[in-house]
Each structure stands twice: as C-alpha cells, then as structure tokens.
C-alpha cells in the first residue's frame, strides 16, 4: 500500500518534472514572458528609483509584491494556448500524462521562474534602496507561498479554452492590473476606504502585500496566520481550476 503510493508519487514527480523542464526550455525566453516577467518589474524599479523621496521601507515592499505577482504569473498563461496554437497540445494529450501532471509541471516551471526573478528583485531592493527585510526568513517564506499562489493563478488563466494567445494575454492583464489597485500595493490597506478594504479581501495579492510589509518591519493589517492560510487556499483553488480546465480540454477537439 505504502509502496504503491510511493510509486504513484514518484511517477507523478517524474512526469511533472519532464513537463516543467520542457516548459523552462521553451517558454522562459519567449517575448511575453520577458516583457511581463522581467522588463515590467525592472521598469517599475527604475521608475521609482529616480528622484523619489518615498520611504524605502514603504516602497520596496510594494515593488517586491508586484514583481512576485508578475514574475510568477507570466509563464503559466502562455504555455497551454501556445501549445494549442503550435499543435503540440494534442500530442501532450496522447502521452501518458494526466491533467494533474500537466498542472504541476506548468506551475512548477512558473514557480522556479517567479522565485528567481523575485530573488533578483530582492537583491536589487537591497542594492539600490538599501532596504532589506527585517525578518529575512519570514520574507522568504512569504515569497515562497506567494510565488506558489500566483504560479497557480497563471496556470488557471492559461486553461481558458482557446487557442488564441491574445485572448489569454488580455485576460491575464485584465485580472492582474486591477489586482494591483485593490490590494493595497501603493496605499496601505488601512488607509483605504471601507469598501476598498472589503474588496481587498478577494485578492490574494492583499495578503502577500500585508505579509511582505510586515517582514519589512511595518505593522500588520490582517492576522499573519490568516494571511498564510488565505494564500494556501487561493493556491489550491487555482490549481483546481487549472485541473478542471485541462480535463475539459478535449472538448475543443
């Protein structure tokens, strides 16, 4: 019984890893990934580093939060529509992988990309603004959870049943840009009007922002544990959405 579960797990791991490696080779250097995952956050950093006098302990968490969101969710939305368009998705459905293997592989490759870029921007934050987290371990943990969550979000967006890349890119911007404004990135949550504070709760980025701010030595708005559980909950929800969508994928054939 235990041996069986172990075997099952190993097979899942092996197949997801194969998919993740394939994704990394193909998609990390695709233009939309570079634009949203690398250039966009870099420009943010540059734009804010020039001639502003905002307190770095306020500014850097905001930049990091955005970077985590955009970097982690930049690879995921690309993969499935790209493969549908290129004609490789149909074969992916004929080799022995389940929709969970595909989802874990896609999220895994997004995760690694998101983590690398986030670490890079943490490094930039320390170098340019001389502002590092007050609780480094807590920050790394928060980053880990959040990158997971937004990678899953990316995979869920990719699962829109279409082979038009532009549809998915539009949807992903439609979801991510408003998230920045309702999640207390530029204005701390407690300074938002009441309706803003209510809406903020449906955005996973709010919890990321609150925890990142806290790890930089600012006061908390939500409860620490609640935020962590919310992020985990959102992650599972997005994973489930992506899984369902891949299972329905054969509808388009």
């Amino acid at each position: 019984m235990i041996a069986e579960v172990y075997l099952h797990l190993m097979i899942t791991l092996q197949r997801s890893l194969a998919i993740a490696k394939k994704n990394a080779r193909i998609y990390y250097l695709k233009p939309p990934v570079l634009i949203f995952g690398l250039l966009f956050p870099s420009f943010m950093f540059l734009a804010f580093s020039i001639g502003r006098t905002i307190n770095p302990a306020e500014l850097v968490p905001a930049l990091l939060g955005m970077t985590i969101l955009f970097a982690a969710s930049s690879v995921g939305p690309l993969i499935t529509p790209w493969e549908r368009q290129a004609g490789t998705y149909e074969r992916l459905l004929t080799i022995p992988v389940s929709s969970w293997h595909i989802v874990v592989g896609d999220v895994g490759s997004s995760f690694v990309y998101g983590l690398l870029i986030s670490l890079l921007s943490l490094f930039l934050g320390i170098c340019i603004f001389n502002a590092g987290p007050a609780y480094p371990i807590a920050f790394i943990l928060v980053m880990f959870l959040s990158v997971c969550c937004f990678s899953a979000l990316g995979a869920a967006m990719a699962a829109l049943p279409t082979d038009q890349l532009s549809n998915v890119m539009m949807l992903s911007s439609l979801i991510r840009l408003p998230m920045i404004f309702i999640s207390g990135v530029f204005v701390p949550l407690k300074e938002l009007p009441l309706w803003g504070q209510v809406i903020a709760r449906i955005s996973p980025l709010s919890y990321t922002m609150d925890l990142v701010r806290w790890s930089f030595g600012n006061p908390l708005y939500f409860n620490k544990l609640t935020s962590c559980f919310m992020l985990i909950g959102f992650t599972l929800f997005f994973l489930y959405l992506a899984h369902i969508a891949h299972r329905q994928a054969n509808r388009i054939f």
Partner: peptide, 26 residues
C-alpha cells in the same frame, strides 16, 4: 501516437524532443 495535426516542439532540438517523451514514458 502520431496525431493528424500534431507538431514537434519546434523550439527544442530533435534530441530534446525525444528525451522529453522518453522521460514521460519513464
């Protein structure tokens, strides 16, 4: 399977294409 409209991964080399499938088949 060789599906009707399928394609190989054009961004990968022939070798990488084969290694990917081999890994999936274990």
């Amino acid at each position: 399977v060789v599906p009707e409209m399928a394609n190989v991964y054009v961004d990968l080399s022939a070798w990488e294409n084969l290694m990917f499938v081999g890994e999936v088949y274990g």
